[in-house]
Design a protein around this nucleic acid. Structure first.
Lengths: 345, 345
DNA sequence: CTGTTAGCGCATTCAA
DNA sequence: TTGAATGCGCTAACAG
């Protein structure tokens, strides 16, 4: 075992017979070095296996070159896609990532993470925790205390300055309009938890579309709340049909619950799509292989993540130049994927 | 907009009327400070909203307190679970994470990431990219060049020093033994890509079990290779049954492909589990809601990630004390989840 | 084109 | 219990 006296810029300078400055210049690819010395320095670097100490560099530059990401820990479709999108774009722009995961918005924990991020002097923060609108006021306050650019993914823009979001409402509309066009008459909905922003928006999309088409009397009876998981889609469909036998189609607010609904329909002896049309949301990889294959609203989560980084980068740049960034919301459009669960032959 | 002259330890020292070291002592919760001054300093810190600069601290201490994680970018079941496990344990042990994602083992990219990690002086590295055994020699060499502890998740231990892995072979055994006990006579297998370590191991588990039970003639004909995705499970089952009509059960090496196989069985008019028994692998959340619900081998991916951090932490400690770490492999046990797809009534 | 002098913000000797 | 001096490894002015 070798001891571990890390090679520093000084060692390189000495070995190359130049000053540390010159080495630094070579490292930073600056033009004001003769190609001769540049080459020599590069050789020495290679020989010594030197790699610059980013920590020292960052301290010196007063920049961390790092983005802080707060993601959603529970396995929920999309969360990993968003992270992947973030990582990819961050990488492209030369940022490093520091990642924290949470399962719920727990003030103490969030405080700790934010404090940690600030201590690390991250240059920007991405809030990629889906939808709990209960916490939004608290969050908004928190965020405004933090003098570092923050982008939120998929939250309503009430109070939050910078948001990148999937247009969930549009998604709800796409799903509902499609069912209408497919000839279904009475369309119910199984929503996600009502305090989730995504769930609300999808519901709104459904409701608006229904109303524009003439509406139903007492529309609330056609709404059932699920918890995003398959069992609740199963139970949900049961209770929905139990109370509204006239229902012939359902917009289920995510694919997992739609899977549960498919199950319930089977048990009830209803054929999909003949007796009952079903449209989901997300387009998880399995959806194409459900039985019958599931019509659903696809969201491009990677794009969402990448866009967030893009916007954040802009904010960071702007901040360095002192301009006050405008508040805004960037939308990503969902797309309807038509399969068999909603098309009568 | 306030300018942004970050508050430093000096500001705090000045405001509290003490020296910077005293502040430093308070920050590091060291005992040799009178509770009087400690309190005063803490107050000033709170008032000024000071947070220590981790970059400077790290430079000074010569430690980064950071773990580098190389994960799998493609959405593949388990990868996000592993990351979540890593994050949770790292958090518990006080490490920060820096994350990079790759879709395949591309030398240039891996080199860049490793170089970046070294530059950031990460204290340990976790390789959480599943199974491409083609790259293993190259990787082994790479890793041995890096003078930083590295833990690999889910790779064979050929050449790699420190590995945390799910016992995939045991998983294959569990699945196969279960089918045998359930009374199935001729059990085929749809594997993952053959160059994936996980795929190989699951196959081995199947094969060993079959052989111990007496074996089949020309066992290779009962093996079909898939690509982890549902369509390949569909196609795979078709060709398997096409060539071996006597097959009455299949061990499908992941749940996605099993979903495809379920589909194929349906199309072929085969009832599951009566005519055909099916066991999957992974236990994705949807598996319980497939039709019929899928018997499968559950892997605890979070545990895998957490264990990796645990081991890595130990390596790091050891390294600081100069002891040479032993090479070893830590196994996580899978568990069979019996549902309807493999149990004849 | 290159070297010298400072200093980034903190922690670690040592004295006092 | 506290403070002064010094250095972590690097980059940013400035000279030359």
């Amino acid at each position: 075992m070798e001891p571990k006296p890390r090679i520093t810029i000084k060692d390189v300078a000495r070995a190359a017979g130049v000053s540390t400055q010159t080495v630094s210049r070579v490292l930073n690819e600056r033009p004001d070095v003769s190609s001769e010395t540049r080459l020599r320095v590069q050789q020495v670097i290679a020989e010594l296996g030197y790699s610059p100490n980013v920590i020292a560099r960052n301290l010196s530059r007063g920049r961390s070159n790092t983005l802080g990401v707060i993601g959603y820990g529970l396995v929920y479709f999309g969360s990993s896609g968003v992270i992947a999108g973030i990582e990819s774009k961050a990488n492209e722009l030369g940022y490093s990532l520091t990642l924290s995961l949470i399962d719920q918005v727990e003030p103490t924990r969030v405080d700790r993470i934010l404090y940690d991020f600030l201590s690390r002097r991250v240059e920007g923060i991405i809030w990629a925790v889906p939808g709990n609108t209960n916490a939004i006021n608290w969050l908004t306050d928190k965020f405004s205390d933090v003098h570092t650019p923050i982008i939120s993914i998929n939250m309503g823009h009430d109070g939050l300055d910078h948001v990148v979001a999937l247009d969930n409402r549009l998604g709800g509309r796409l799903a509902t309009e499609h069912l209408l066009q497919a000839g279904y008459q009475c369309i119910g909905i199984i929503t996600g938890p009502r305090h989730w922003w995504e769930a609300k928006e999808r519901l709104m999309g459904w409701q608006e579309t229904i109303e524009e088409a003439g509406g139903y009397s007492d529309i609330d009876r056609l709404i059932v709340e699920g918890d995003w998981n398959a069992p609740s889609g199963d139970v949900g469909l049961h209770s929905l049909l139990d109370q509204n036998p006239e229902i012939d189609a359902v917009f289920v607010s995510n694919d997992q619950m739609a899977l549960g609904s498919l199950q319930a329909a089977r048990r009830l002896g209803l054929k999909v799509p003949e007796d009952l049309g079903i449209v989901g949301f997300d387009d998880i990889p399995e959806a194409a292989y459900f039985y019958p294959s599931l019509t659903t609203v696809r969201q491009n989560t990677q794009k969402l993540g990448a866009l967030a980084v893009h916007q954040l980068h802009a904010l960071i740049q702007v901040e360095h130049r002192g301009k006050a960034p405008d508040s805004e919301i960037a939308w990503v459009k969902p797309r309807l994927i038509v399969r068999k669960s909603s098309v009568r032959k």
